[in-house]
């Protein structure tokens, strides 16, 4: 509780107010309200299909919400012009679930892609920058000239992380950062997420359903269920909460108020 009091005074880095998004008759987001404060690491947990990815895509500008507002540093970012959007995006970095590396480019070209687009830097400087960033995620310059197709899942995630931090972003997003990795590699990635965001002093927003990962990287955890944030609090508060939905999700139990039946689309 102490923590939440301390940060309440600042303006939020990201503010979501009353966010709605539907696909046909499927109402994915039904009024999401969430404040993320500068420098904190917030993790959104929730089952598959609860709207975690859609929330993230709305913040990134890959989707427009049907209603509601998104503010970044106090600036409204819904319905922006392309130029203004690109400026906002320059503040952000994103690690995609499958890393989403460009397979027509080498590892270093992937990492330096953002800086090469936004700043006028020479190829030599770009490569140097890429190798620096690769070192931050524990990769040597041997991988710089190979293509992403020949990397393992864990290596791809590392390169993806290097690319996400290459533009020195204020905000970094992580989409299921540990999905598809073995427990040890998951822990390595979790550690890297913590160290790299700390080093940049960035705000981090992660969506995941991996509780081990959430506990490790989160300052605060928010739970998304039925298109709304139903609970938010610190990791300590998570273990004490009596909220039946959160308890069921954290325990990973099939019995509880959360419907386990897969919803069939009509």
């Amino acid at each position: 509780m102490l923590f939440s009091k301390k940060i309440l005074s600042k303006t939020p880095k990201i503010r979501l107010s009353n966010l709605y998004k539907s696909f046909g008759r499927k109402h994915v987001l039904q009024g999401v309200n969430l404040d993320i404060y500068p420098g904190e690491s917030l993790v959104i947990i929730g089952g598959s299909g609860t709207g975690k990815s859609v929330t993230l895509k709305c913040i990134l500008g890959l989707m427009e919400p049907d209603a509601g507002e998104i503010e970044i540093d106090g600036q409204k970012v819904t319905h922006l012009s392309e130029k203004a959007r690109e400026k906002v995006n320059a503040k952000m970095g994103m690690l995609f679930q499958g890393a989403a590396l460009f397979d027509s480019l080498t590892v270093w070209e992937n990492v330096a892609f953002g800086p090469m687009q936004t700043q006028r830097i020479t190829k030599k400087d770009a490569k140097k920058l890429a190798i620096e960033k690769l070192a931050l995620v524990g990769l040597t310059k041997d991988v710089a000239d190979i293509y992403p197709a020949s990397l393992s899942g864990g290596m791809k995630k590392r390169v993806g992380l290097a690319r996400a931090i290459a533009g020195n972003p204020d905000i970094i997003f992580f989409d299921e950062p540990t999905t598809g990795l073995d427990p040890i590699m998951s822990d390595v990635i979790n550690d890297l997420i913590i160290t790299t965001t700390k080093k940049l002093g960035a705000t981090a927003l992660t969506i995941t359903h991996d509780m081990t990962s959430a506990r490790k990287i989160a300052d605060r955890i928010a739970m998304l269920y039925n298109g709304k944030i139903i609970w938010i609090g610190s990791v300590k508060e998570l273990d004490k909460t009596k909220d039946p939905y959160v308890r069921q999700f954290v325990a990973g139990s099939a019995n509880g108020p959360i419907l386990t039946q897969a919803k069939v689309e009509k």
């Binding site: 990134l60 970095g93 590396l101 953002g114």
Partner: peptide, 13 residues
């Protein structure tokens, strides 16, 4: 594989 989304996040149309 979300590479097109990745382009947008890297300030490239």
């Amino acid at each position: 594989t979300e590479q097109i989304d990745a382009l947008s996040t890297l300030s490239t149309n």
